[in-house]
Write a protein that binds this DNA or RNA. Structure first.
Lengths: 204, 204
DNA sequence: TAGATTGTTAATCGATTAACAATC
DNA sequence: TAGATTGTTAATCGATTAACAATC
């Protein structure tokens, strides 16, 4: 079993490697990739070893093949559909941010409780009533939801998504969600983050 | 020395306790707070012990006094000024999100490279040219910067902020920053997060 | 080959968990 | 007091780091 941290690092390596590939770089050493990713060379080697790819002591890692190995590991070959719930300021910013960023991950539906937004297409994504969520989530085989809703309704919305088949939640609502073990939740708590930065800016 | 994780948990406890105080709850047990925060009771007790506050075996922790203890620990009594760099979709969403959320943390200046935005006031925050950043950051005694700029300029902007006196960075740019040990960086990498969720939604 | 790098094992470190004495 | 909770120490766990043999 592999935990969250290595998965996050693999995602980062891939992004950095894509940059290198763009520059025409064909192979890379663990210490070079490590410096770019802000981790140790040993960590890079272990992460790469864990996904079953092997380098060459002479040339290091082949950039293109390593990207391919990471993609095989991280991505669903058929792609995965994502829903976004809560089309407020943050929700729209996230729609804009993710739009076309990852080929294998598409935000295919947005949900909101404001009738003004129903039927509109925002950043290429159709907006539905939250009441239609169970139906749309099932129809589009959505297993991933991004929650950009207020804290007081986050748990309720999460439960609704999970009942409709969602297995992974990216939670921007500043409140911890209680879910069963078969559902993965990743929290992005911006209030907590800024308070951490403020604390260390002051005391470091 | 205390690390980042306990600080983040304290921030979360305070938020939950504020909610309880609002409901008129006067005291709370570690296991109750733990359940709400999604951590263990022992962890809550240790975190609270670490900031020097003590509970009572009969009544648990006094909500109001615990909030006060956490605030004394986390907050600068005089408040801290924050700058936001990059007034795009995400930057504006973050301005809206933080506006008035934490009394001791105010985003007092925004910077951008687009002349269209210079002089405008967005969500109560004045927007300046990035060229004015060194001057404004020094004048307003800003020690905290939130970076919402594209990946390719993030390092350069970070260096500029640090030269002007910034000691803590909340980095939304999807690229690791290289900074000296006296500067604290907290990364919010949304691409990494969604890829983690996608992975676990698929394999869990 | 020589030398730098990779793959893998052993040692270390830190945080979490469990256990228990102290307390109201 | 009795009993549940707090504060604190010891044990455990997992991840990281360091060391080194294998490889090109």
């Amino acid at each position: 079993m592999i935990s969250g941290k290595p998965i996050g690092r693999l995602s980062l390596y891939r992004r950095l490697l894509n940059g290198l590939m763009h520059e025409g770089v064909q192979s890379v050493y663990s210490h070079d990739l490590a410096a770019r990713a802000g981790v140790t060379a040993a960590q890079v080697r272990r992460d790469i070893m864990n996904i079953g790819y092997s380098g060459n002591p002479n040339r290091g890692y082949d950039v293109r093949m390593l990207v391919e190995s990471i993609s095989n590991f991280l991505d669903d070959p058929d792609g995965q559909n994502v829903a976004l719930v809560g089309v407020g300021n943050l929700g729209r910013a996230i729609l804009a941010f993710f739009s076309g960023r990852r080929p294998k991950l598409s935000i295919v539906a947005a949900f909101d409780s404001d009738p003004e937004k129903f039927g509109r297409v925002i950043r290429g994504c159709r907006c539905y009533s939250i009441d239609q969520a169970p139906e749309v989530i099932r129809e589009l085989n959505i297993k991933i939801a991004t929650l950009c809703v207020p804290a007081n309704v986050a748990q309720e919305i999460a439960d609704l998504c999970i009942r409709a088949g969602v297995k992974g939640i990216l939670n921007f609502a500043p409140v911890p969600l209680h879910v069963s073990g078969s559902v993965y939740v990743e929290d992005i708590d911006m209030t907590m983050s800024i308070e951490k930065v403020a604390y260390f800016a002051r005391t470091n």
